[in-house]
């Protein structure tokens, strides 16, 4: 449904987007993940036809976003970072206006407006002026606006930013509900959001793709090894020498807690090796008190940190 090939966008000397390529299949939810200023918004703006690319191509439903901009614009719904609202209009009149400029046939407008309000739970606020709505409701109007013409592709730029936890949950459910029928790209810098809503993730940093995969694959593949958290009472140096004698550990971080004889540790082992038993017996045999041992998987957050900091080192 969406094909992006070698897309590049420069502002003068600076490259906001640098040679990125990816594909999105019909009905998928693709998460665009990256720190602020990574090029997420720029990429989305190119896809919507708001910005011209400096190089490369992007196609939506087979239409080039630049050459056949009109065809593309008919098929996309777009929610920019700040919802494009007219505060002095009511929810219903605003959505009717958007439906009209998006080219919805006159006889379908009322039905589409109704449908989009139903999906976003705006029915009880339809007669309200947009300026009187709360941030969460405004965001919903923004989403309703993006789907009112029943587009093939919905592009949402940071749809949950500035919302409270309850509203975030609502918006995420709403987005999930939209998938299947619509192909969705959403950008965010909040990691759990991607884990929860997206089928696939593109991690973008400094205008380049750092990783692209399904959410599960990315978590397991990049996990590398297993990580074990421990808490031990005793001498840190003794603990370190004990641990270093265990084969298969790739990283040992020990943090003695000040004022106590407690040590917090984080140990990573090679992929696929569960060394918890060895670690535990090593510590106990070394005459140290093992207070806690716990296996932890790497979260997307760790992967994200790894990828984006690796980029910097390279």
């Amino acid at each position: 449904m969406i094909e992006v090939e070698h897309l590049t966008k420069s502002y003068g000397q600076a490259r906001a987007v640098n040679d990125i390529s990816f594909k999105v299949e019909k009905g998928e939810i693709l998460g665009f993940l990256g720190p602020n200023g990574a090029g997420k918004t720029t990429t989305m703006r190119i896809l919507t036809g708001y910005l011209p690319a400096t190089g490369g191509t992007a196609r939506i439903a087979g239409f080039d976003v630049f050459e056949q901009s009109m065809e593309v614009r008919k098929r996309i719904g777009y929610l920019p970072e700040t919802p494009p609202l007219y505060p002095e209009m009511t929810v219903e009149s605003y959505l009717t206006f958007v439906a009209r400029i998006k080219g919805v046939a006159a006889q379908n407008i009322a039905g589409r407006v109704e449908e989009s309000m139903k999906l976003t739970n705006l029915n009880d606020r339809r007669k309200e002026l947009i300026k009187r709505l709360s941030r969460g409701y405004k965001q919903r109007v923004g989403i309703a606006q993006a789907i009112v013409h029943n587009p093939d592709v919905v592009i949402l730029d940071e749809p949950t930013v500035g919302l409270d936890p309850n509203q975030i949950k609502e918006v995420r459910n709403l987005i999930k509900g939209l998938s299947g029928e619509h192909t969705i790209i959403l950008s965010t810098h909040i990691l759990p959001e991607v884990e929860m809503t997206c089928d696939r993730v593109v991690i973008i940093n400094k205008g380049k793709i750092a990783a692209i995969d399904t959410t599960e694959n990315l978590t397991s593949q990049l996990k590398g090894g297993e990580r074990v958290q421990i808490q031990v009472r005793g001498n840190a140096d003794a603990l370190r020498s004990k641990l270093e004698s265990i084969e298969g550990l790739i990283r040992i971080d020990l943090e003695p807690q000040e004022g106590t004889d407690l040590i917090q540790g984080s140990i990573e082992s090679e992929e696929g090796k569960d060394l918890r038993a060895q670690i535990a017996s090593g510590i106990v045999h070394g005459g140290l008190d093992l207070l806690e041992i716990r296996a932890v998987g790497l979260s997307l957050e760790d992967i994200f940190m790894q990828l984006t900091t690796e980029e910097k080192a390279a």
Binding site: K74, Y78, P80, I101, G103, Q145
Partner: peptide, 14 residues
């Protein structure tokens, strides 16, 4: 300023 221009420009309007 409101960002609604972005919506108009990404709508199928010339």
């Amino acid at each position: 300023k409101r960002g609604t221009m972005e919506m108009l420009m990404t709508s199928p309007l010339t």
